[in-house]
Simulated assay, not measured.
Amino acid sequence: MYPAPAFRQRGMLLAAMRQLIAVVSGVFILFFSIKVFPHLPACPAFSHVFKIASDWTENFYQWDAMKIMKIGMPVLNRSDFEGDTGDLTAWQIILDGVGAVSRANLRNPAGVMQSEIPLLARLETPAVKVTAVPAQPPGTAAVLSDDCLVALYNTHTGETYSLTDGVERLDGRKGGVVTVAAALREELEGKYGIKTARSERINDADYNTSYLESEKTARELLAANPKTMVILDIHRDSGKTREQSIVNINGQEVATLLFIVGSDARRPFPNWRQNHAFAQELSDKINSMYPGLSLGIRVKDGIYNQNLHPHALLVEVGTTKNSTEEAARSVRLMASALAAIIRQQ
């Protein structure tokens, strides 16, 4: 999913910088005190204070920027907005900012080493290599099902892939995720005979109301296709490195998959575990056929329209570090796992 608007990121960055200044100041005072009073570390009181400072620093390092905002503005806990912040903590935002200046990925140890030893930057880290057996022999004819069994749409229609389009988002237009959804439909129908409905409606003309708009789209799809067994909201992830975004399958670089499942953390959603169980089944099936393709499941606070159907899922296909073609390859592989589950049911 596309990161939250820039003004929210700037606000979190400022808050994080204030915290960082406090940490640096505390460390400076600590070392200055030791220099002036060399016997201070032997004092039990000093050890206790140092322990508290260490624990606080560790908690700060793991602090979630969105949680900081929710502490300051409790109304965010009740908001209907179900976007995301790219899953970056305040500390990660700082590291990314410093890394942009130093031209090193400070969240990746290899990136730090490459910045100090330029020769390492010329070495490419190979992706995990997987050899998978096709689920169906090539050339097998597929007879299209009478009923529509799968429905596809994009809440964040403008999300796209920077390796293809040079940007992460096409405001008010159809981004790479729409092309990826089309590839999934083509594979399901052409290869596995599973009739699939797909909407290209732009739901994120106003990003903050995108889920309100996509709920209308999802309801329309389900009303028009009452026998739908699976409905998928196709997104792309952000905040990951290139290495975290690809897996090598049958000699090709393919975008990784991540399933997002909503919960009842903010609003009533009593049946969310049904969606989680289906996500787990699909993720396991994918990895049994193509190990490493699915990164698993992430449970989040929103509902993401998943209360409309027990097999409604949000799928993040690749990240901003992928190309549209890599993401399309990914869903074509996912289609084989999805088809196998549908046939079982």
Results as ranks from 00 to 15, higher is better:
residue 230 V to I: 03
residue 138 P to A: 15
residue 251 G to Q: 02
residue 333 L to M: 05
residue 282 L to M: 01
residue 315 V to A: 03
residue 129 K to Q: 07
residue 303 I to C: 12
residue 330 S to R: 07
residue 290 Y to G: 04
residue 248 N to D: 15
residue 238 S to W: 02
residue 64 D to G: 10
residue 326 E to C: 02
residue 168 E to H: 13
residue 86 G to E: 00
residue 241 T to D: 02
residue 294 S to N: 02
residue 52 I to G: 13
residue 260 I to H: 12
residue 253 E to C: 04
residue 238 S to A: 12
residue 278 F to M: 09
residue 228 T to G: 02
residue 325 E to A: 11
residue 168 E to N: 11
residue 206 D to W: 11
residue 26 G to N: 10
residue 282 L to W: 04
residue 262 G to L: 01
residue 149 L to N: 02
residue 135 A to C: 10
residue 77 N to F: 01
residue 217 T to S: 07
residue 38 P to W: 09
residue 214 S to A: 11
residue 220 E to F: 00
residue 300 K to F: 14
residue 72 G to S: 02
residue 41 P to A: 01
residue 301 D to L: 13
residue 271 N to S: 04
residue 276 H to W: 10
residue 243 E to L: 00
residue 194 I to L: 14
residue 2 Y to F: 10
residue 148 C to D: 04
residue 160 T to H: 09
residue 119 L to I: 01
residue 115 S to A: 08
residue 140 T to I: 04
residue 309 H to V: 03
residue 325 E to R: 06
residue 286 I to P: 00
residue 55 D to S: 14
residue 275 N to I: 12
residue 12 M to I: 08
residue 211 Y to Q: 08
residue 13 L to N: 08
residue 253 E to P: 07
residue 177 V to G: 13
residue 314 L to K: 07
residue 149 L to K: 00
residue 65 A to T: 10
residue 269 F to Y: 12
residue 134 P to D: 00
residue 79 S to P: 04
residue 45 A to L: 00
residue 299 V to Q: 10
residue 343 R to Q: 11
residue 192 Y to C: 10
residue 340 A to W: 06
residue 299 V to Y: 01
residue 204 D to W: 02
residue 122 R to P: 01
residue 61 Y to I: 14
residue 170 L to V: 11
residue 279 A to R: 03
residue 21 I to T: 14
residue 135 A to H: 07
residue 2 Y to I: 12
residue 58 E to W: 06
residue 123 L to K: 00
residue 291 P to Y: 13
residue 253 E to H: 07
residue 9 Q to P: 11
residue 288 S to N: 02
residue 84 D to F: 12
residue 144 L to P: 03
residue 25 S to W: 12
residue 338 L to S: 11
residue 140 T to H: 10
residue 323 S to H: 08
residue 94 I to S: 08
residue 60 F to P: 07
residue 319 T to I: 08
residue 212 L to P: 05
residue 62 Q to L: 09
residue 56 W to D: 15
residue 279 A to M: 07
residue 318 G to K: 05
residue 229 M to T: 09
residue 69 M to V: 10
residue 117 I to D: 00
residue 276 H to K: 15
residue 87 D to S: 02
residue 277 A to Q: 07
residue 65 A to P: 02
residue 337 A to W: 09
residue 323 S to P: 12
residue 226 P to W: 10
residue 338 L to Y: 09
residue 254 V to P: 07
residue 328 A to L: 05
residue 239 G to S: 06
residue 239 G to N: 04
residue 283 S to G: 03
residue 275 N to H: 07
residue 302 G to K: 06
residue 208 N to M: 08
residue 294 S to G: 03
residue 111 G to F: 03
residue 249 I to S: 09
residue 17 M to W: 15
residue 243 E to C: 00
residue 33 S to V: 09
residue 172 G to K: 11
residue 331 V to P: 07
residue 142 A to N: 08
residue 181 A to G: 03
residue 21 I to Y: 14
residue 195 K to H: 04
residue 172 G to V: 11
residue 134 P to N: 06
residue 138 P to I: 14
residue 273 R to V: 10
residue 206 D to M: 03
residue 40 L to N: 06
residue 289 M to D: 09
